[in-house]
Computed example of a mutant assay.
Amino acid sequence: MNQSEQAVAALQRLIEQGELRPGSMVSERGLMAATGLGRTPVREAIQRLALNHMLRIHPNKGIEIPAISVEDQLSGLEVRRAVEVLAVGLACRRATEKDIAAIAALKATLAGGFDLHGYSETVRETHALIIQAAHNPYLEALMVPLQTLSRRFWIMHVRDEQAEIAHGKRLHRDILQAILLRDPDGAGAASIALNSYLVEFALSVVSRMAASHS
């Protein structure tokens, strides 16, 4: 991983975890300090993340960390639904023995207990392994921004952390198990089940917001 890729990964993580606060303005120098990387890789990362709607560049004003609305989340999930079904199907067909071993190990890890941060890191690793096992170089550019923004929304709005983590773990383990069995139909169904959960979660946020204003 070169320094530009390191900067992209670091900024994605800071955005996902809310350490770069939604709606805030930041500077290039501030992002250099946050990542510990130099001007050139950070500048390249900013340009790449802006293309994926994870940052907005305002000339002479700074860099905005966009807020994500329920509408944004639902729009992203529409695209993510289709792309992830493709990804898990390819992973079932193309995973190497090395990929399968890594997926089996991660499925076992998902049986353990997690706090919110540990769970989000493990989910990121889960999706990275699926992308790797699909062996299509275009999938990462499509999937990672959608997944990062989706996780940020979930992290921002989760209330009963352990109940939601337990539910999410089951859904991710079902996807990994289907890939281990090289079952494209089962993996696709499990991926859709995860997406449906995230849609339901987003709609529950709408209901909660409406209740708080009534």
Rank of each mutant, 00 (worst) to 15 (best):
N2T: 14
E5T: 13
L14P: 08
E16C: 15
E19S: 15
V26N: 03
L31E: 03
L31D: 00
M32G: 09
A34N: 10
L37C: 09
R39F: 08
N52P: 07
M54E: 09
L55A: 04
L55M: 08
P59C: 00
N60C: 11
I68M: 02
I68T: 08
V70P: 09
V70R: 12
A87M: 13
A87N: 07
G89Q: 05
R93D: 05
T96Y: 05
K98A: 15
I103G: 04
L110G: 05
G113S: 15
D115I: 10
L116G: 06
H117F: 01
H117W: 08
G118Q: 04
G118N: 02
T126H: 00
I131K: 04
I131L: 07
Q132P: 04
A133Y: 07
A134T: 01
P137L: 02
A141V: 06
M143G: 02
S150H: 06
R152Q: 08
H157S: 02
H157A: 05
E161W: 12
A163K: 14
A166D: 12
H167A: 14
G168S: 14
L171M: 13
I175P: 07
Q177T: 12
I179M: 11
P184A: 07
G186T: 04
G188M: 10
A189L: 12
A193G: 11
L194D: 03
N195V: 15
Y197R: 13
L198R: 14
F201A: 00
A202E: 03
H213W: 10
